[in-house]
Every structure is written in C-alpha cells, then in structure tokens.
Design a protein around this nucleic acid. Structure first.
Lengths: 155, 155
DNA sequence: ACTGAAAAATTCGGGGG
DNA sequence: CCCCCGAATTTTTCAGT
C-alpha cells in the first residue's frame, strides 16, 4: 500500500468505471502496471467491490429510516439470515448499548414502512427514527492518518 | 424504466466495472443500445455514481460508530459544511426525534475516536454507539415493488 | 435498436532496471 | 519484484439504416 495504490483507490472510489488507460495517465504508470496493482488490491480484499449507486427516491423508495432493534434473545434479527434478504433492509449493524442492532430501512411509503415494522416486531421491539434528508450519503476512504485528527485535515 | 433498465441497474450495482459488451450479452441487447441506456440512467440521475468500495479495517479505519448529535441550535453540525469534509465523517443524516442528526463515523483507534468526539462536542451533545460488526454492509436497490411486502419477496 | 468499420483499451508475452 | 514495451484480441464509439 504505497502512495500509488492510494491514488488508485482514490480514483476508483470517485469513479469505478475509469479505464486502466485513464488510470495510468492519472497515476503516471503504464496500463499493465495499473491493471496488476488494481487486481492485487482486489485479491487482497482492500477493494471489496465496484457498485453503481442508485437514487432511491427516483426508483420509488422515498422513505428512509433507522430502526434500533431490542430483540427477544434467541429470536434476534441477527440470528435470522432471512432478514438480511429483505429488499427493504439496506444495512444491518450489531451495536453496543440497549439495542442489539441498528437497521437502515427503505420503503415506498409510510404505509409500506408500517408493514416493515410489523414484520420486524416478532423479533423484538423496534424503535424507529425517520431520515428527513441525507446531507452526506457516502464518503470515500481516505489516506489521511486514521490516528491523527489535525485541524489541517479538516481545512 | 423498463425491465431492461432494471436488469442493467442490477448488473451495475453488483459490478460497476462490467463492460458494455458484457452487459449487452447479459441483457440481450447490442453494445450501443446498452451504452445509450446507461448514459440515460446517468443523466436522469437514477445512477448517481460508480464507486469502488474499500475495506475500512484493512486500511486502518478499524473503529466504526454511530453518533446522534443533539445540537445547540445555530451551532448545529448540519449548518457547518466543514463537518461533512472531515475524513472521519462517513455519512450524515438529518433525523426526527430528540437528536437533530445521526453521524456514521470511522477512526483508527479508540484514542482517535475520542478526539473526534471532542471535535464534535462544540456543536452539541454527542451520543455514541459503537458498531461491533456489520452483518449487512450494503444492499442494491431492487425492482421489488416498494409498496408491497409480500412474504414471497422475502423467501 | 442493429450493423459495420475505425479508434481505443485490454491483455499477453518478453525483456530491462 | 516491479515496471515498460509492443503485438494480438477485445471493446468502444460513431456513422448510416
């Protein structure tokens, strides 16, 4: 993981469809060298995938919510692999605190969202918070030192 | 947005680096037809971008947390565009409830995480929840009816 | 939306620092 | 080991239909 690898990660996080040729121009390396580095980043698991991001509101999923689940022991959502398959469940986090998990959930309407809650209720007590807007949707991993928090980094 | 567009969205969400040729084979269309459809999905904002996903733990950002911010009115984190620039802040949601926002935050260690909390404190009272693990990191947008919640969808 | 040709990118093999 | 070069193959793009 040298600075060239980081440059490639930065470019591919910003635009995953860049060609090896274009990448080679941006990091000042030959296309085969770029291809080899990228494949190594994929194989070592640094790059976990390349994904098109889709506007959920434009595709009918206009309701977004965070649901903290306080589960009934063995019936926990974390123990049922089926829950992770529901199209409404976008992300699942196991967390510290009173609740055992936090779910990011999408639905087409409040009516549909209510039905998701009803489906979750058998697993535990759901506590919902609606998302009004998303000022920051996603941030790429940066090469900034994860240990430091210089104000310079934030300028 | 017909079924071919949805097929393209499904493929590109699973692998954003698929070539138009490969896509054309999968959706049974010619490469130029695929290219035109994809460009239309980009221009209408259905596809918001293509992003390489990077393993945060493998790149030094091993600590992940959710922070609910109860802000001091005008000093709210939502009002300071600088906060969205911090490399530690991954996502920002404006939410309903007691807190005004929910932040997804990464750091290299608990020490570094503590410094993030200190940086956030001037904006309001932060309430942190640590993420122990992430059983589901990301789910693609599906063509499932956002209004329905058939058990069939979940089988 | 398809065809077909030109331009560009990818992928090999082989060799150098 | 990592990188570059150059040729063969594949892909992209653009014209016309």
């Amino acid at each position: 993981m040298d600075s060239t690898d980081w440059a490639l990660l930065t470019e591919l996080q910003a635009d995953a469809r860049l060609s090896y040729s274009e990448l080679s121009r941006r990091v000042h390396l030959s296309p085969p060298a770029v291809a080899e580095r990228v494949r190594r980043l994929e194989q070592t698991g640094v790059i976990t995938g390349y994904h098109a991001h889709v506007d959920r509101a434009k595709t009918g999923w206009s309701v977004l919510a965070m649901i903290r689940m306080s589960c009934y022991g063995p019936r926990c959502v974390l123990r049922d692999p089926q829950v992770a398959q529901w199209p409404e469940i976008l992300e699942i986090y196991r967390i510290t605190g009173d609740a055992c998990s936090l779910l990011k959930v999408a639905a087409g309407s409040m009516d549909a969202f209510e039905r998701v809650i009803d489906q979750l209720a058998p697993y535990g007590r759901p506590s919902s918070t609606m998302v009004l807007s998303t000022p920051l949707n996603w941030r790429p991993v940066t090469s900034a030192d994860p240990e430091s928090l210089d104000t310079i980094e934030h300028e």
